[in-house]
Design a protein around this nucleic acid. Structure first.
Lengths: 151, 151
DNA sequence: ATAGATGCAAAAACTTTGCGAAGCC
DNA sequence: GGCTTCGCAAAGTTTTTGCATCTAT
């Protein structure tokens, strides 16, 4: 099954609808390997649907992220970047220009090796973040009660 | 040599001055293991220097970061969090409340092992970002010319 | 004495939200 | 037809900047 149909089905499962705008946000993102920001994506989609608003792009990116169809790369300064490739890989971000490129890795443990292999980049560091639920939140199964500090 | 003196020396080397505000931002951050946001740090420092402004806290955090004395944890949604521990370690961030805790690792390759060891957390994922200079920026040694997309 | 830092306030950068109109199923 | 999504505009959140004043060296 094509990726587009797959995502359409996922959207329908959630009671959502596949609008022209939503499809385009998805398609344009998938056609790029540049990990665009929401603003950049907005500019690109606007070439095809001139009336689209930034809010729609943000809303659709969030929805597609919630469905697990896009990655949010909110590392580093500046705006969040998006990635339609959700299979395991990590990223290299330029500390000067903000450019982000893919680094294929099979496993997190390969990250150090990957760094060594990026010979055309000057790798100066590597950051790792594990994520999940802390003990308090894991135990607090009531989703209504957000612990202090939540957003 | 004490950490405080070490940092003071670094600041002086850059032609900077160790003001009351700067020292406090540093000291308060170092006294916490909660990885506060700039706002939280501002509130805490304000207890000791009631006239300090948020701008000063931001400016000092940026300077200390440039000196390599604090880490910026700008993972995830919401404001950037700061960390005075710059020795190698990684972080676990709660996807519900935003809490960030330290996870000591000797090497990036240990990340997967660390995940397994965080038995009181419910780890659902792990992200890795390498950083450094991309080929274009590495070659462009003229710091005046920022490539497109830079910030 | 003087370059660098501060405090204030305004602005910038990025993202979310409210609401009435329009469109998908 | 009904509920979702859209476009617009306004507001929210986080961070940066301009400028006159102050201060560490």
């Amino acid at each position: 099954m094509a990726r587009a149909e797959e995502i359409t089905k996922l959207v329908h499962q959630q009671g959502g609808r596949m609008t022209r705008q939503r499809r385009l946000v998805m398609e344009v993102l998938a056609s790029l390997d540049t990990h665009p920001t929401a603003q950049e994506l907005y500019e690109l989609v606007r070439e095809r649907v001139p009336t689209i608003s930034p809010a729609t792009v943000y809303r659709n990116l969030k929805l597609l992220h919630d469905l697990g169809c896009v990655l949010e790369l909110d590392y580093g300064p500046g705006p969040t970047r998006y990635d339609a490739t959700v299979t395991d890989h990590c990223h290299a971000r330029c500390t000067r220009c903000g450019r982000v490129v893919d680094v294929p890795v099979v496993d997190v443990a390969d990250a150090a090796t990957a760094a060594a292999a990026m010979s055309d980049w000057l790798i100066t560091g590597c950051r790792v973040e594990l994520y999940g639920l802390c003990p308090k939140c894991r135990d607090a199964n009531n989703r209504k009660t957000q612990p202090e500090g939540a957003r």
